[in-house]
């Protein structure tokens, strides 16, 4: 799973959001490290919808323009949970390795 996809699914985990809402939430959750461009966001939303990870929730008309809300599907929640666990395992592995290095254990050479 690519990083923008991960953050979009994460932004939708709690509640349904419209496009700008997703962009704002991703910027907040990533502490400003990820800034989604609108074209990229909607391409990802289209792809995730086609893959069943995201679904259209409802439409809202604001200032005469339709604002569409997207939500995470159950399948999307499962995929996000799996990705989250994978990232946690990776982070844990890196942390363990670093702990060994700091405790003065001899480093392993290349395989």
């Amino acid at each position: 799973m690519r990083e923008p996809t991960f953050w979009i699914l994460t932004a939708l985990a709690e509640q349904a959001r419209h496009g700008y809402g997703v962009i704002q939430e991703v910027a907040r959750l990533s502490e400003g490290q990820v800034t989604l461009l609108a074209g990229t966001l909607y391409a990802a939303l289209d792809r995730l919808t086609a893959e069943g990870l995201v679904a259209v929730d409802h439409d809202e008309v604001v200032d005469g323009r339709t604002r569409r809300y997207y939500r995470l599907t159950d399948y999307g929640a499962l995929a996000l949970a799996a990705e989250s666990e994978r990232l946690q395992r990776n982070a844990q592995t890196a942390t363990t390795q670093l702990r060994g290095r700091l405790s003065g254990r001899p480093e392993l050479g290349p395989a």
């Binding site: 496009g19 700008y20 609108a38 200032d63 339709t66 604002r67 569409r68």
Partner: peptide, 13 residues
């Protein structure tokens, strides 16, 4: 409708 949806987002951004 995607065009209008995008326009709404772009104006907000």
């Amino acid at each position: 409708p995607r065009r209008e949806e995008l326009l709404d987002t772009l104006l907000a951004v």
